[in-house]
Simulated scan of single mutants.
Amino acid sequence: MIRNYFKIAFRNFWRHKLFTLINIIGLTIGITAALVIYLIVYFDFTFDKLHPEGDRIYRVVSYYGYNGESGYNDGVTAALPLAVKGEVSGLTESAPLRTMYQPNILVPDGSKAPAKFRNQSDVILADGRFFNIF
């Protein structure tokens, strides 16, 4: 019985080739769009769930504008973390970060000349308060 159903469906597909092609393309686009939307929503809802109080952790960035160009910088002034902690209510901890691009890090060895640490492209320095947050 099911063999007859497939035979009839195949004959209809073969007889109406244009409509079959349009239906298959539409079904493919619909399934692909649904899958892409699912993956985007899944990524947004599972992002950064590592820390138990992750909704209370924020990163402050600097906005700049120069000659009609604007953008954001990953750094702020050095005095900002202490000033924010004293001025903003509800803030429990702040930790300054410093980014070094292409640093030259030397490790002292005592008797010999200091050894150069591996070549790193970006190194971020933080103090002990960073571990209080994370």
Rank of each mutant, 00 (worst) to 15 (best):
I31Y: 12
F10E: 05
R11I: 05
K116A: 15
R59A: 12
E93K: 07
L82M: 03
Y42E: 15
I29F: 14
L27S: 14
Y64I: 12
Y72R: 11
F47A: 13
K116V: 12
V41I: 15
Y66A: 09
S111I: 09
Y5H: 08
R15W: 03
T32Q: 04
F47T: 10
F117L: 14
N67Q: 14
F45Y: 10
F130M: 14
T32S: 13
S70M: 12
I24G: 01
G30K: 01
R98K: 12
K116T: 14
N119S: 07
V123L: 12
V36F: 11
G128H: 10
E53L: 07
V36Q: 10
F19R: 15
A33H: 05
Y72K: 05
D44R: 14
E69S: 12
N23S: 15
F130L: 11
L97F: 08
Y5S: 08
A9R: 04
N12S: 06
E93C: 04
N23I: 04
A95Q: 04
G110L: 07
K17M: 02
F6N: 03
R118E: 13
K116G: 06
P96N: 05
S89Y: 04
K116S: 12
G86K: 13
I57F: 08
N23G: 12
V107K: 13
L82F: 03
R129I: 00
K112Q: 11
A115N: 11
V36I: 15
R15T: 11
K85F: 01
P96I: 01
N12W: 04
Q102R: 14
G54Y: 12
T99P: 00
R118S: 12
A34G: 08
K49P: 01
F134H: 02
Y63G: 07
F13T: 00
G128C: 03
F13Q: 02
Y63H: 12
N4F: 09
V107S: 05
S70L: 09
Y101W: 07
A83G: 01
N12R: 10
L27M: 13
K17A: 04
A83C: 00
P103N: 08
A78F: 06
N132M: 09
S94E: 02
E87W: 02
I40Y: 07
I22Y: 06
I8S: 09
R15G: 00
H51S: 08
